[in-house]
Design a protein around this nucleic acid. Structure first.
Lengths: 239, 239
DNA sequence: TTCGATAGCCGAACACTGTTCTATGCTGGT
DNA sequence: ACCAGCATAGAACAGTGTTCGGCTATCGAA
């Protein structure tokens, strides 16, 4: 019975083990570091997440962190996987496979978005952490049980993951910007005015659709793309 | 007849004008800087593209560049738009709208990919440059003439753009790696072995699909996702 | 033709970054 | 009491993007 394999033992081989776990009190540990990193991300975004700031937040120096983490890249993977760990997975139900898959996508989207622009830490990297793999496994189970062939299922997992990253990135870099004043011209309005100011004879559609394009709720846009992808995937269902 | 509007006059208002054009010989100019930047990108990738290296390549100091460009962000936009300018657009033909749209996506994909990982310079930024807008305009024309309503058309342009960026990013960060030796274990193989080594009782699908997932050609994956999106978009066609 | 204005250029410096080297505490086992 | 070692940091290194101030060469106007 090897069913009680904890997620700690599933860490990829290139995640350097923390040179044995902390012994006495735990002022520093991988978990504590990831906690602090998430706190900085939530508060001030990814640009504020520096090694020195992280050490300062933990009441220690920057060099101390390198005993527990290999570098900033690994920190990014750890943080990403921690966020993926927040996602709860229901029991796969083949009858409602499309609803469940969409709901998982929405959960992932919300989880990443809840941590500011943390997605920029890990965009473009393949899924690696144990929590991420747990989700991929769940997705594959669901799709196979629903009659999606292996090849489209494997491809779709990849495509959906990249779509998710891109959507979260877009949503996190262009916040609603309903700040405090009315004269605050955020980037969106500036762009809209620029589009509208283009010569109408050369760009008739751009000028006509300027409002449609920029009166976009990032969440609606995500839902639109998700629907597109799911519609396309359903066409691969065989039985 | 304002039809001879050159693309120079279409630059967004936040692209600082080069404080009048170069006067005598032209050792430095925005175009020359973008040329050199593209050269560095093609040769050594985005990590090698630093301001100092760029100045060195142009036979000048780093500070001189700041007379012509506002900073590295603007350089990224300029480079991105330059690459988009390489794309040739055919006359829109509503009868073959889906083929033409897919072909445009493939052209963009190839154009970005031809310049190494240049996509990392501009990922997540909204389309802004004149050449990019020309493409968006063309897409909108095609979709509207084909009977796609305005809202899906505007949304689809956004979604496709992000899908493109993500695909190029993936394809450029995981090259075929068929280098020279057979013992070279690139990241893909390492990941595949890790997946295959996972406990089969907890991850039956991951282990079963390890080969399917990693024997993936990035171009095939792109084509798969593109097909998914286009299939979904076609459902919005009204007439 | 002379001459100031200024566009264009650039070395040096600033404030950062991630990372490593080295030294030094502190701990538990013998 | 001692010592191996884990764990912690200060200082320093090699970079980065960016800015400051001074420099030169050219141009339009007197």
């Amino acid at each position: 019975m090897a069913t009680d394999v904890t997620s700690d033992q599933l860490e990829p081989p290139w995640w350097r083990p923390p040179k044995q776990r902390a012994r006495r009190r735990a002022p520093l540990s991988r978990d504590a570091i990831v906690d602090a990193a998430l706190g900085i991300l939530d508060a001030d975004g990814v640009d504020a997440l520096t090694i020195r700031r992280l050490g300062q937040e933990l009441g220690t120096g920057a060099a101390s962190l390198y005993w527990h983490i290999a570098g900033k890249d690994e920190l990014g993977e750890l943080v990403y996987d921690r966020i993926m760990g927040e996602i709860q997975l229901p029991e796969p139900d083949p009858a409602r496979w499309d609803d469940q898959l969409k709901e998982l996508a929405r959960c992932s989207y919300r989880a990443m978005l809840a941590h500011n622009d943390a997605v920029r830490l890990s965009i473009g990297r393949p899924p690696a952490g144990p929590n991420t793999l747990r989700i991929v496994e769940w997705m594959l189970t669901l799709m196979r049980s629903a009659g999606i062939p292996d090849q489209p299922a494997a491809y779709f997992g990849n495509t959906l993951g990249r779509f998710l990253d891109a959507s979260v990135l877009e949503a996190s870099t262009a916040p609603p910007a309903e700040d405090d004043a009315e004269s605050v011209e955020d980037g969106g309005d500036m762009m809209r005015e620029y589009w509208a100011s283009l010569p109408g004879d050369r760009f008739p559609n751009l000028t006509a659709l300027a409002d449609t394009t920029f009166d976009v709720d990032a969440d609606d846009l995500f839902e639109f793309g998700l629907d597109l992808l799911m519609r396309g995937l359903a066409a691969y269902k065989v039985p």
